[in-house]
């Protein structure tokens, strides 16, 4: 089972929900592997809440063309086929702007003299660690200065697919927003939990996130974090649009303080543990009745 935890707005509690839910599930389902995957590769934070032993660390690359001048006939085909302006051609020189390249291979494969072989370029790291006997944690981390998160998210997901059987419970901690990194993180998951705050900012961005999930034909439900702080508009919107609220995490200063120290919240506050169980039960029942 693959569950993505996402939100339109940043800072609504994606990581809090991901780490607490994953940890709780690992205690409740001792016969299953729980795999938490941090796909917020620009700013991965889940690791800060977990005591982990690192099992494996890999440098991740993506392929980009590298000019080999030996046989180049300066025909200009590479520049012509590149839709991203990633290739500049001077009379005796071909120059690749690595950051603009989308790794589509068109220039490389359409070059009549094979002068642009695809070569690996470092973009970040991937780490696998073990938290407890049945609880694993995978983190993708983008190198600073790298612009595109999507290829690293995609490779991190592939690593998980190759290393863990389908019967594991896999949680994706996704990046914020509604654009390409989120799409990459959420696609092919069985269920998406959208977490929001009951404020006008939260509602506005929740609507964008819902539109994104609908465009992707994803099954989803909503969790309200910091419940009680704002107004009832998020609940009203969900009930009017028949969107299930999976659970609510209350607004408590104690939660903010535990979070700030990097502590798991459900260990200290039993109300949160009950809500997490409810969120998972509701998720399972929505998945069974789809």
């Amino acid at each position: 089972m693959k569950i993505a935890i996402a939100s339109g707005k940043g800072g609504t509690g994606k990581t809090t929900l991901s780490v607490n839910l994953a940890s709780l599930l690992s205690e409740l389902y001792t016969d299953k592997n729980i795999v938490l995957v941090d796909l917020d590769v620009e700013e991965p934070n889940s690791a800060l809440f977990l005591q982990q032993s690192i099992l494996k660390e890999e440098i991740k690359y993506r392929n980009i063309p590298k000019w080999d001048e030996t046989n180049c006939i300066h025909c200009g085909k590479c520049k012509e086929v590149c839709n991203f302006n990633a290739i500049a051609q001077l009379p005796k020189l071909v120059f690749i702007f690595n950051e603009l390249c989308h790794s589509c291979y068109a220039c490389s494969e359409l070059c009549p003299t094979q002068s642009l072989p695809m070569k690996p370029m470092r973009m970040g790291t991937l780490q696998m660690s073990v938290i407890s006997e049945n609880f694993y944690f995978i983190e993708g981390k983008l190198d600073i200065g790298q612009e595109s998160a999507v290829p690293l998210i995609s490779q991190t997901k592939k690593f998980v697919k190759d290393n863990f059987p389908d019967k594991s419970i896999i949680l994706y901690d996704s990046p914020p927003g509604t654009s390409c990194p989120v799409i990459e993180a959420v696609k092919d998951s069985d269920f998406v939990i959208l977490i929001t705050e009951p404020t006008p900012f939260g509602l506005h961005d929740l609507k964008l996130a819902i539109a994104t999930m609908q465009a992707m034909k994803q099954i989803f439900g909503v969790v309200i974090n910091r419940a009680g702080i704002g107004n009832n508009e998020v609940e009203k919107y969900c009930s009017e649009n028949k969107i299930q609220i999976l659970g609510k995490i209350p607004n408590m200063r104690e939660i903010a303080e535990l979070y700030s120290k990097g502590k798991l919240i459900y260990h200290e506050i039993s109300q949160v543990e009950n809500e997490l169980i409810q969120i998972f039960e509701n998720t399972k029942s929505l998945l069974e009745h789809r």
């Binding site: 620009e42 700013e43 934070n45 800060l48 983008l142 979070y259 700030s260």
Partner: peptide, 27 residues
């Protein structure tokens, strides 16, 4: 924007002054 990727780089390049708003949490 949040993050460190292309939208952030596009927001800050060439600007005169950057203010970083943070909070005292591990993340």
């Amino acid at each position: 924007t949040p993050g460190i990727g292309c939208p952030v780089i596009a927001s800050i390049t060439g600007a005169n002054y950057i203010i970083v708003v943070t909070e005292p949490s591990v993340s």
